[in-house]
Amino acid sequence: MKKSLIVLLTGGALLVTGTPALAQTAKPTLGPYGYGTVKLGMSATKAKATRQVVFKKSAGEGSCSGWDLKALPTDKDSVGLYISKTVGVAVIFAQKGVKTPQGIGLGSTLKQVKKAYPKVKNSASGFPYVAVPGNPKASYVFIHAKGKVREMAMSLNTQDCVN
């Protein structure tokens, strides 16, 4: 340890080797194109090929099937994303701990949302939404209660799965 400290003080850099416990992996963010390897617009076949999604419910009479992200399973009556027969991965819902590249996630305040996204607007139904920075084909939608985000999704502007 003293050698490392001397190297740090004299060489201006610290080299850590043989300690995988110190290695940190970056957690995927929701945006600007998807979550990890699952990207908006990706077909169901391509999404399955990532091995990061799990099928939950068929499209039935609708055009969208429900799926979960393997790393972020939802409860029995929910889905983590929708895949449309026409536009591919159409909507990805944020789960606990997931944030946008701008640091917004479940539990963020509306004040934080407005600071991170100054161009946020309210939809006709009253929910704040904003174009995803870096991806003009997608938007974030924030459903809130008592001034805090309780649900959040990133979707293609052309999605045909949810209202």
Rank of each mutant, 00 (worst) to 15 (best):
S84Y: 10
A59M: 05
R150H: 09
T29S: 14
K85V: 01
S58Q: 04
A47E: 08
L106E: 04
S125A: 15
V38S: 08
Q112I: 04
A44Q: 14
N163S: 06
S58H: 06
L106A: 05
A49G: 05
T25S: 06
K146M: 05
I83W: 12
T100I: 05
L30E: 03
L9P: 00
Q112R: 14
N157C: 00
I143Q: 13
L15W: 01
V38P: 05
N163P: 02
G41Q: 11
Y117D: 03
S63Y: 04
A124R: 15
V87T: 15
T10R: 04
S65R: 12
T109Q: 09
K146P: 03
N122F: 02
L69M: 15
F55N: 03
M42E: 10
G62R: 11
P118V: 05
D77C: 00
V53P: 06
V89C: 04
L40V: 13
Y140P: 12
A90T: 07
Q52D: 15
K2M: 00
P101H: 09
Y82E: 08
V54M: 06
R150W: 07
Y35K: 10
S155D: 00
V132H: 08
L15T: 00
L40H: 13
K2D: 02
H144Q: 15
N122L: 15
Y129F: 15
V91A: 04
I92G: 06
N157M: 02
G34W: 02
A124D: 15
A138E: 08
G97P: 03
A71H: 02
A26F: 01
M42L: 09
L15H: 01
A26R: 13
A94V: 06
K99R: 14
P73D: 03
D68Q: 11
T45F: 12
I6H: 03
G18M: 02
T50F: 09
S139Q: 13
K114A: 15
Y82P: 00
F55Y: 14
V132A: 05
G103M: 08
T29G: 06
T10V: 09
